[in-house]
Nucleic acid binder design. Structure first.
Lengths: 165, 165
DNA sequence: TATTGTTATACTCTATAACTATA
DNA sequence: TATAGTTATAGAGTATAACAATA
């Protein structure tokens, strides 16, 4: 049981936001904190047999968009190139993607999902999104619409301001 | 420039969610992915001089709620106890918190923010939330309200389902 | 025995800097 | 020179398992 000193409990209550809480400066802190907690929590629901989060994400992107270069994947996920090299190499070792030389440009590599990768995503997605989907079922349709809209806004914000800095 | 094959561009377009996208199973995947990208992006905006994310968060919690035990902090942030031990120790080394023995229960430790910790949070918050606040200023009041409400819902979801598994 | 916290260990994710190969 | 990618290195964050101290 968390220690909650007198006067502290209110700040965790689940109330709709006041207009003050929509002020950019106030919202920024609150939003950052909520995103951090929720992300960690959702990730922690990953089963031991599942792919780690970033590997899963990259594999899913490849299946949705088709073969891509490591650089394009890094842009898409807003990470630096060496980070994506590592993620892709992990997927290669697991046999979920292959790396192919580009037909005409010798500098470029194409990352292509394998059939094993495809079924892995299918299975993982089924297991891993179960818990979150269950939580979402408990919400009202309005609340789900709010979250869906928030997801769009968050992607918009993440895409803003140039590549990672 | 990301490689976007024909037919792939639509999935990244910034459109309001359709009713299908509000279905729990669909929303779960999309939400998880958006949270992941946004969180990474917001964290990457942290200045080199700023406290790392989790240290900053814990320090801010202590300032808001007063001295707490490591266990209570772990519950609050939905992390495991060893993780919090590490975070608290980092803050002790930086001089931003102190650890005190509990007056009556010898097993318990109280983590208390120092004055240096307080001013560090003030400074860090000013710098680090700047970028996000700037992005939020560019949104409509409606969109900000959506994000504020989403933050509440995300905390609610994070708090659900028992301690971390 | 149960609770609180720590130590030991290991893995994921991320970044910057420096390097190689190709264009 | 410029671009794509990798290697080297380091730091942050997280978890599980095993342990010590106290209640």
């Amino acid at each position: 049981m968390p220690v909650i000193p007198p006067g502290g409990a209110v700040s965790d209550a689940l109330q709709p936001p006041t207009s003050a809480q929509c002020r950019p400066a106030t919202l920024a802190g609150e939003l950052r904190s909520a995103l951090s907690v929720a992300t960690r929590r959702i990730r922690s629901r990953r089963g031991a047999a599942d792919l780690p989060d970033q590997q899963f994400t990259v594999l899913a992107v490849l299946l949705r968009k088709g073969p891509m270069t490591p650089g394009a994947l890094a842009d898409h996920e807003h990470v630096q190139p060496p980070t994506m090299t590592r993620t892709v190499n992990a997927l290669v070792e697991l046999g979920f993607v292959t790396k192919e030389p580009h037909p005409t440009d010798g500098r470029v590599v194409l990352v292509r999902p394998t059939e094993a990768g495809e079924s892995e995503v299918r299975e993982t997605r089924r297991r891993r999104d179960d818990w979150l989907a269950q939580q979402l079922k408990g919400l009202s349709a309005d609340d789900r619409a709010t979250l869906a809209q928030a997801a769009v806004l968050l992607r918009q914000i993440a895409a803003a301001g140039g590549p990672a800095r």
